[in-house]
Design a binder for these strands. Structure first.
Lengths: 115, 115
DNA sequence: CTTCTGTATCGATAGTTGTCAATATAGACA
DNA sequence: TGTCTATATTGACAACTATCGATACAGAAG
């Protein structure tokens, strides 16, 4: 199996400014420990979704702050949400994490032979 | 092949605060369009490495700013560097990108069936 | 309509960050 | 030694962000 052909986009050629812009926004959403834990909590929650009340219980932060972080994750395209009666449920946008994963790692050995 | 068994760590269970801290630092290094392009430029450069002079030529930024971004990427564990005579060369730390990739995506379908 | 609960938005503030000009450092070469 | 080039560090500043308290909004239940 050839390796030089299956590099990730990031390694195959320099990112365009536009691509970098979009990607940076997604990574920025992941650049906060609280948001990473939120995303992981939602992703690993039963049924693949969690309401804000579930999430709030896991963090020692005020409710507006929780809401703010969820908004950042939603606007980055990582979470989606829906209101059901009194509660709002969040889930991971299908494919979003895998898309980022592929951009970074692509194939297994992408960068390991650079040196 | 079963899918529910090969989820990425992030999807399998809620991240610990410590893990989130470490991960967030790496993602923060990727959260700037300039740094993403720099990383990509180095990774895709001939021989897997580039000197600062190569990098500088691709950005409309002052030299101190270039140097600052490279430092952030180095301190996040994504780039390493070495001085050779007058020039300083940077390369991607082997495995760094793939590690991040695995945490995000794990297996192919990790999140796509959440809904 | 009123009240209660869950969630979002607003406004303010302390802390962080991207950028630059100025300066310092390291090595090559006279 | 001194000078030149490549890179790093320092200091300053504007822009951004994480957080909070106060307030607004949405739906359920009286």
């Amino acid at each position: 199996m050839q390796q030089s052909e299956c590099y990730s986009p990031l390694v195959r050629e320099p990112l365009s400014e536009d691509s970098a812009q979009v990607l940076a926004r997604m990574f920025k959403a992941l650049s906060d420990p609280v948001r990473l834990r939120m995303l992981s909590l939602v992703a690993s929650h039963e049924g693949g979704e969690a309401c804000v009340c579930d999430i709030s219980r896991s963090f020692d932060l005020t409710q507006p702050t929780i809401s703010h972080h969820l908004k950042v994750l939603r606007e980055a395209g990582l979470l989606d949400s829906e209101r059901r009666a009194t509660w709002v449920y969040y889930w991971v946008v299908p494919g979003a994490l895998q898309q980022l994963s592929e951009i970074l790692g692509g194939s297994a050995l992408s960068v390991s032979m650079a040196q």
